[in-house]
């Protein structure tokens, strides 16, 4: 599948950049004419993935977060969020709802939220090398809203 359009974004893993990252990816995805719910889905999922890079991947330091996004024919959207941080030892366990290594205010729901708001999620991680999360979503768009309404 060949992308119609692509974007790349590189940010430092500072929490103030969470809002910037999700707003930027959402602005790019807007080319597919998504409805408000779909844009919120992408914003929320990207926010979770970027937060994971900051609080887990680069827990004790500031590193780079690499974001790539692409749009395809028929309203298909893909976004990859990558860090070169500590990596995840057990990806399956990390993806279990309510599992968190941090406790306190972290609900352990990051991956559960990404799963519920996207059609597809892929997580590739290597300890000491980093983690890549790929999210895919098909937008039905505003026309679908009109059909319903």
């Amino acid at each position: 599948m060949k992308a119609i359009n692509e974007m790349r974004l590189q940010i430092e893993s500072r929490s103030v950049n969470e809002a910037f990252a999700r707003a930027t990816v959402a602005a790019f995805a807007a080319q597919l004419d998504p409805n408000i719910e779909e844009i919120s889905d992408i914003k929320t999922a990207v926010s979770e993935a970027v937060t994971n890079c900051i609080v887990h991947g680069y827990a004790e330091k500031v590193g780079r977060i690499y974001i790539w996004a692409a749009i395809y024919d028929n309203g298909h959207f893909k976004v990859k969020i990558r860090d070169k941080g500590c990596g995840i030892e057990d990806v399956r366990q990390a993806m279990e709802p309510l599992f968190t290594t941090l406790g306190g205010e972290r609900a352990g729901l990051g991956f559960a939220v990404m799963e519920s708001f996207c059609d597809k999620i892929k997580v590739i991680s290597k300890v000491g090398k980093g983690t890549t999360v790929t999210l895919e979503k098909h937008f039905k768009g505003r026309d679908a809203d009109n059909d319903r309404g």
Binding site: E48, E105, R106, L109, A112, V113
Partner: peptide, 12 residues
Amino acid sequence: FMDSSGIGFVLG
């Protein structure tokens, strides 16, 4: 807007 941090906020 809120992500799972909103849930963490209520839980806390």
